[in-house]
Amino acid sequence: MQITRGMRLTEAKTYVAGKLGVSVLDLSDPTVMLDVRKELGLGGILESGEITDIDDPMGIEAKFNIAAVLDVPVNCVERFRAKAGRRRPAQI
């Protein structure tokens, strides 16, 4: 939110907490955020394949969901949509 919307820290935290349905304090709490990220498909650490497994979005997959949840465009996601949708862009 800082790089896309130019928000100051307090404003950015409040915005993200609102979108995720958690408190501002939760945003820095790995215990809470592990579950939140898993539930919303926002990607996580691949530690030994035990925490984030093959069903969980990772890498650019997670960024598709981050863009949707935060309601911001993510450049590489938009470019992926354009490049991967050459035949039928409406479907992507």
Binding site: D55, P57, E61, F64, F80, A84, G85, R87, Q91
Partner: peptide, 28 residues
């Protein structure tokens, strides 16, 4: 993997990793 989205469409065949990707990011 981007290219595989287009390969799937052009060849009219499912590509497993593309379909899994769509599942994980909510694409049709």
């Amino acid at each position: 993997i981007e290219a595989k989205f287009n390969i799937s469409q052009v060849l009219d065949i499912p590509i497993n990793s593309v379909e899994r990707f769509k599942e994980r990011v909510g694409l049709a």
